[in-house]
Design a protein around this nucleic acid. Structure first.
Lengths: 354, 354
DNA sequence: CTGAAAGCGCTTACAG
DNA sequence: CTGAAAGCGCTTACAG
């Protein structure tokens, strides 16, 4: 079809030019066995002269090891996941591994597509931030094909699997308690999609805090949403127009918080004056001091732990699946009603085996 | 090494179970030729029952078409590139293509590594945001192997190659002119690394504006930098402590602008009162109205155009390499000294053949 | 230390 | 519409 034929140089060409067998060339390329120095030199020269680039597909096919790992995230637009991808890419490239990237956009079908692709590619392993429990079947297929999978940020059903995620219930509880300490009685929450374990756990933490404080739980004050600014804005508006609106809100994601603030402003209300806010995620990017009181999950650490876990599996570690829960910093700023930025930080760091 | 053997089902297993030849199975999988309905049904059932997932490595090896494209960006931390990756991933997945992701971190060696990997993987094509002209050799190697490459955001030396980038000189000129209209006489610029064509062109636009306005060009007011907040902060501080400091600054990237504002604040100076700023990129993410007057390159459009160009090449388009320059919106906000947000937008949109 | 043979799991021609 | 043969470019045993 195209004019230029992919006229690749093959291992046979190199062997012929160097006057050795293919195997010798293979051994030189992979340093997989000792080769007499003179031969090695001849091979290296031939490789150089011919501009030989070993075909990794062929290698992957016969060696059953491609040197590629897959990374799936639910939203590539979210700086939390961006940082995760960035970090995993760093670790991978440092290990000579290549990353195949997938973005499900929180859609289970896209997720299934990607995981099927990845299975077809016979990647060495995968790190996935699932859309939710819908990923169980796909992940199981990968596992039964012998491909190690590490879950990140969200659980995958009840599957026994390595998983690395940020603390969810405790920080939500702390955020809520903080709002309670500011004197709020009617505290609402905009949670994430119930399909994500993280969302459910954060909601638990919120409810737990209310309960412990002896506050009534008004079910109409908890709202499920997608992790988007527009959902935050829309639901925020609805809550603020509630007959008995909340005076404070916990949001499960910063996009949601931004949207709520948009809504408040459009209604002529001020934050935290008319509505106090505490949120998850710390990704305000800009020239001014951030204002959001939030639970900041260390994305880089989560990513690195997940990557290291996968690397261990690739090396043959077949210990029991591990659940690693990474501590979260609570950053007190002004959206909750605090004046100054008293850096009262809370750190939890847990690591359990399951 | 591991306990579970990747006991994959192969096309031969399916063929046997369906009582047909491998070729028939292959034709069913790929819809590459007509197959009698009953046989097709038998094959489909066998695939289902066996849980067969075709091996794309094997397919790629013999068909010389993997269904994978490579995407390289210089900074995965920069929302401009994140959005680009996001969009390319969208287009690719919609076309059934998989994305292999690389991040050079602006380091030519990492770039070369990635491009070598990608060549070894025999990907179908690549879209690369190069670190600079250092990528010439790597790109040439891909091209001569018959792998189409589309450059994005930055040129690759003088290589004849498809390229999609945002306008650079004109917006820089307009930004500078705008500052001049505010009455500034001493206008500096923090440009990006000179290795990137974009940086050089932006600097040209800045100088052009000064020249046309008859303003002196003080070379000490132009500073080269990396695209980072810390560089912005450090260089910003140096410029502000200059014996005759600039009263206005153009920055080639928003991270730089943020850093400059950090520096100004730490010196007790205000923006735009003591220092007016106009920048490239529009990626303030947060709850408040953005303040940066800037040239906003449409990352999504750039990405999509690049992806479409590559797709055309994959389909066999062998026309002359094309240079597409995408228009940039100028967003007037307050960092330049304007009061309100008069949305005076400038749009340029050009497409040239080279 | 070295190499000939077989095989990885597909597809590409080629016949029929 | 269908299939047997050869080949894609490597590596894995196996001999020596």
């Amino acid at each position: 079809m195209t004019t230029t034929r992919p006229a690749y140089v093959t291992i046979a060409d190199v062997a012929q030019r160097a006057g050795v067998s293919q195997m010798t060339v293979s051994r030189v390329i992979n340093s997989s066995a000792a080769v007499r120095p003179e031969k090695r030199a001849r091979v290296e020269r031939a490789i150089e002269e011919l501009g030989y680039v070993p075909n990794r597909l062929a290698r992957g096919l016969s060696a059953r090891r491609l040197g590629v790992i897959a990374v799936l995230v639910p939203d590539l637009t979210n700086p939390f996941f961006t940082e995760i991808v960035h970090k995993i890419e760093d670790v991978a490239s440092e290990q000579g591994l290549t990353v195949v990237l997938g973005n499900s956009d929180e859609r289970p079908e896209r997720e299934a597509d990607f995981l099927r692709t990845v299975a077809a590619l016979r990647v060495d392993g995968a790190i996935i931030g699932a859309t939710g429990d819908g990923a169980v079947a796909s992940v199981r297929r990968l596992q039964s094909a012998g491909i190690p999978v590490v879950a990140l940020d969200r659980r995958v059903g009840k599957l026994p699997i390595d998983i690395v995620l940020g603390a969810a219930a405790e920080p939500a509880q702390l955020l809520t308690q903080h709002l309670i300490q500011h004197g709020h009685k009617r505290i609402g929450m905009i949670g994430g999609p119930a399909s994500a374990s993280t969302s459910r756990e954060r909601a638990d933490g919120y409810r737990q805090a209310l309960r412990e404080a002896g506050l009534e739980e008004d079910p109409s004050l908890y709202r499920e949403s997608r992790f988007s600014r527009s959902d935050g804005s829309q639901i925020g508006r609805e809550l603020l127009e509630h007959r008995a609106p909340p005076t404070a809100l916990v949001t499960a994601n910063s996009f949601l918080a931004f949207g709520v603030i948009d809504a408040a402003e459009s209604l002529g209300l001020s934050v935290p004056g008319d509505l106090a806010i505490a949120s998850f995620d710390d990704f305000e990017i800009g020239p001014r001091q951030p204002i959001l009181t939030c639970a900041d999950q260390p994305a880089g650490d989560i990513a690195e732990l997940a990557a290291r876990r996968l690397l261990a599996r690739l090396r043959g570690d077949d210990s029991v699946p591990r659940t690693v829960i990474v501590g979260t910093d609570i950053r007190i700023r002004t959206s909750c009603g605090c004046r100054a930025a008293e850096p009262s930080e809370y750190v939890t760091s847990t690591s359990l085996d399951s």
